[in-house]
Design a protein around this nucleic acid. Structure first.
Lengths: 131, 131
DNA sequence: CAGGATCCTAGAGGATACTG
DNA sequence: CAGTATCCTCTAGGATCCTG
């Protein structure tokens, strides 16, 4: 019989194909809030409110929503302490830590090229403002 | 006298602050289309149409728009050959290549954890479907 | 404190048509 | 072929209120 496994496409690792699982995962993680959360978490354990305080501009809704996605993908571990008031802690899983390393690479890249990018922008704007 | 430099904030390298230049640059690059373009470009030189063909699901508009942003930041180099019909080629700059390396890290991460993420999702969905 | 549910709007992004 | 402009849709995401 033809199983689901058998009919599944083979190039799942190709991040280019919109219908591949890899692309879905990549895209799910390739957004500012997810990357900022991962970056801010680092190797710490933070509560919901702490997390929110460290990420300027994130709304209550986006924080919960993004955390749910990351939790579902096994990137973030969510621990609920059944106290009152509740205490919920978030930390990166092993997969999350691996991802964090590449995110830190992006942050390092930003710092490294900050000045050059500023310059490039000024040149671009100058060249395109007139006509 | 107080110069612009003097009044500028010092923590520009902090990607957490929404008003920092670093955050603006980070966020500008932390979106799926930008990352996919950078990934697809690799070390090749591609024309607009080729690029579009390799990134499934990207619209004409988003491709131009995202390329403009990357060009402005000096991540992508745009070369126009004044022929008819026009031939426009895109390739990564040195800064772009550096960024590509971290993007490739994200792709590698996706492949590496693909199976585990699938498992995590199934478990999460099972645990949350019922209530 | 953590977070679900609802409502609602600003802006991302698609489709299409036009230009050099 | 590459790119701009326009219009229009739809959804990401904010504000707010409510629960355990």
């Amino acid at each position: 019989m033809v199983t689901e496994q058998a009919t599944r496409r083979v190039d799942e690792g190709d991040v280019r194909r919109a219908d591949s699982l890899a692309r879905e995962i990549f895209v799910g993680v390739a957004n500012k809030w997810a990357l900022l959360i991962i970056n801010v978490l680092g190797d710490r354990t933070l509560r919901f409110t702490e997390l929110r305080g460290e990420i300027e501009g994130i709304s209550h809704k986006m924080l919960t929503q993004t955390l749910r996605g990351l939790e579902r993908d096994g990137v973030v571990l969510r621990t609920v302490h059944p106290t009152v008031p509740p205490r919920v802690e978030y930390r990166l899983t092993e997969a999350g830590a691996a991802l964090r390393d590449t995110v830190n690479g992006m942050c390092a890249w930003t710092r490294r090229y900050l000045a050059e990018i500023e310059t490039a922008r000024r040149r671009y704007d100058a060249d395109h403002s007139v006509g």
